[in-house]
């Protein structure tokens, strides 16, 4: 190992952040594209429609969903109710077709069948869901999960959403889903570089992946030492440290945190 422990820790956190950076860039690009579409509607003096927007969004989403073995398992645009002339409630979301126990590619993309009729029992007001609610409130990108996405694929998922705006008003969110099983494949090799135990958790302390196979993904990482390290980060410190030596770092602005224990 070269450099100090702190430097090594920071490099690991950077690599974790690097896993998410391309995904965030993708979503940012789509946000710009969707906003440009809305501006174009305004310039032409026509009302925005799902019919015009959907093919555009599909063309953006498909390459990410078709990339063999890619991280992105779902992608699309969800409209603010009432913004589109031809669809009061609208989810334009596409899914990678997944196969079998190893959750591998099946080699296809399908559109999500959403229930858009508010009178139906299966209808769910998506404005109540975290991936909508948080970006709406903060105006910023948000990472939801890991959670069981039972509206969509019934898979264990992380969802990244960011608001698209027009004339200062949110017209919807664009976003991507990543199955945790795929994320694990990318994150574990990085965590194995850690001397000791490396664990990636979300902002609530829920485990995404850990170099210790006995730390179960989806459980909350407990313990006073972990909590004090996490609290220090939440209070704005660069690094959190527990009394028993747990180190906590932010993985850039990915919202994920890295916990290191010897």
């Amino acid at each position: 190992m070269t450099g100090t422990v702190a430097e090594h820790d920071a490099r690991i956190a950077e690599q974790i952040e690097g896993t998410f950076a391309p995904l965030f860039a993708l979503v940012e690009g789509w946000r710009t594209a969707v906003q440009e579409e809305f501006s174009a509607f305004a310039v032409q003096g026509v009302a925005p429609t799902a019919a015009a927007l959907d093919p555009r969004m599909e063309a953006l989403a498909r390459p990410a969903l078709e990339a063999p073995g890619g991280l992105v398992t779902g992608a699309g645009f969800v409209a603010t109710p009432g913004v589109l002339l031809d669809a009061p409630w609208h989810l334009a979301w596409w899914l990678r077709e997944i196969h079998g126990l190893d959750r591998g590619d099946r080699g296809g993309v399908r559109r999500l069948e959403a229930v858009n009729d508010p009178d139906s029992d299966q209808f769910r007001d998506y404005r109540q869901l975290e991936w909508w609610k948080v970006p709406e409130r903060t105006g910023e990108r948000h990472v939801t999960g890991p959670y069981v996405d039972y509206l969509c694929t019934d898979d264990y998922t992380v969802t990244v959403t960011t608001p698209a705006t027009h004339d200062g008003r949110m017209v919807g969110v664009v976003g991507i889903d990543v199955h945790v099983s795929r994320l694990e494949r990318v994150v574990l090799p990085i965590l194995r570089e850690v001397a000791g135990t490396g664990t990636v958790v979300n902002g609530s302390g829920r485990i995404v992946a850990s170099s210790d196979s006995h730390r179960v993904t989806g459980t909350l990482l407990r313990g006073a030492d972990v909590q004090s390290a996490l609290t220090a980060l939440r209070d704005g410190a660069e690094r959190g440290e527990g009394a028993e030596g747990t180190r906590a770092l932010r993985c850039g602005d990915s919202s994920f945190l890295l916990l290191l224990q010897s």
């Binding site: 029992d121 959670y147 069981v148 039972y150 019934d154």
Partner: peptide
Amino acid sequence: RRAVARFQLEVAALSQSPRLVREEL
């Protein structure tokens, strides 16, 4: 009945297990 169905589903989702959610449904 809808309240119970939703409750069952939400609790299953909190288990963080996609398989339990699918089986619940």
